[in-house]
């Protein structure tokens, strides 16, 4: 399959079930809302080392937030509910509670609760005040700039993590420019998150390693410097490969994001230096969700 001069591999991305929560962080102005959001989603690229994969889903206008101030909506993904609870509490406690002027609200309805202000309230040392407004419970924790207003609980939902596609290009600048385009397009979509730096990962991995302690190691088949040494998936003209990893609240969200991302790269055409689009999988045995690139691209057709 060739789209606008760019080859689409007949392969699939393999994704996993995760659990996710959405928070709404508001602040005195958009700048501080973004600072709080970026801080609480820092060091959250991969559950392997960070405990959570998190990022800002979108900026919110004052009309779209519970307290009528500018805000951001933040998505957090983790492998289990328990881990998600831990990560939400730590990240909100260390990064939102501490950030000037912020307030934190649940951004999701659901049956499975995740404590938010429920435990953070104890920072108030007995001076915290609960308020039930419109069926929801909020905590007012006295802090040095006034009060930290925080909803008692948020909810979590089952989600999909690890959808991906690989961009194979003549060189690094071409791969990067194409991926940046895809990231811009995907970040316009709701309910999806690109957890890696700037939305792009360069260190795609395979399962296993020659070292016993490591669960995963570099994806040697796609490393240009190993071409000729290992069983490489790269032809002579490929100079660099970058990966876009996509987490979404539902399978359909990841599917749509994959399509939008690949379409935006294909729109650039072969002149952009992009040669092929592929995807990462583990033989289809590990993940519950498979995203076949050619099927996804046929969605629109």
């Amino acid at each position: 399959m060739i789209r606008n001069g760019i080859a689409i591999d007949d392969t699939f991305a393999e994704a996993f079930g995760m659990t996710a929560a959405r928070l709404i962080v508001t602040a005195i102005n958009p700048r501080w809302a973004r600072i709080a959001g970026e801080t609480m989603t820092g060091f959250a690229t991969s559950v392997i080392g960070c405990g959570a994969e998190a990022g800002i889903e979108s900026a919110l206008a004052p009309e779209a937030t519970p307290d009528g101030r500018p805000g951001v909506s933040v998505l957090l993904f983790a492998v289990s509910g328990k881990e998600l609870e831990k990560q939400v509490e730590r990240r909100v406690g260390q990064c939102v509670l501490t950030c000037p002027s912020t307030a934190c609200f649940s951004g999701m309805e659901g049956e499975k609760p995740v404590p938010l202000g429920k435990n953070l309230r104890y920072f108030g040392d007995g001076f915290q005040i609960a308020k039930r407004i419109g069926g929801r419970r909020y905590w007012r924790v006295p802090v040095m700039d006034g009060e930290f207003l925080c909803e008692e609980v948020t909810a979590r939902t089952s989600a999909v993590g690890g959808g991906n596609f690989l961009v194979l290009a003549r060189g690094l600048p071409q791969a990067l420019a194409a991926c940046e385009q895809a990231v811009l397009a995907i970040r316009r979509l709701p309910r999806v998150l690109l957890p890696f730096p700037g939305g792009i990962a360069r260190s795609g991995s395979k399962v296993g390693s020659k070292y016993k302690a490591l669960m995963a190691s570099t994806n040697d088949a796609y490393c240009p410097t190993l071409r000729g040494l290992v069983h490489s998936s790269l032809s002579e003209d490929v100079g660099a490969v970058l990966e876009i990893v996509i987490n979404g609240l539902t399978e359909a969200d990841v599917r749509e994001a994959t399509r939008v991302g690949i379409e935006s790269i294909c729109a650039l055409g072969a002149a952009s230096g992009v040669l092929r689009i592929s995807a990462g999988n583990y033989g289809g045995k590990l993940g519950q969700y498979h995203f076949h690139l050619r099927e996804i691209l046929a969605d629109q057709a």
Binding site: P66, D67, K131, R140, G146, L149
Partner: peptide, 11 residues
């Protein structure tokens, strides 16, 4: 300027 007032009056 307690923030909860905004929630209350909006509700």
């Amino acid at each position: 300027e307690p923030g909860f007032l905004a929630l209350l009056t909006r509700d």
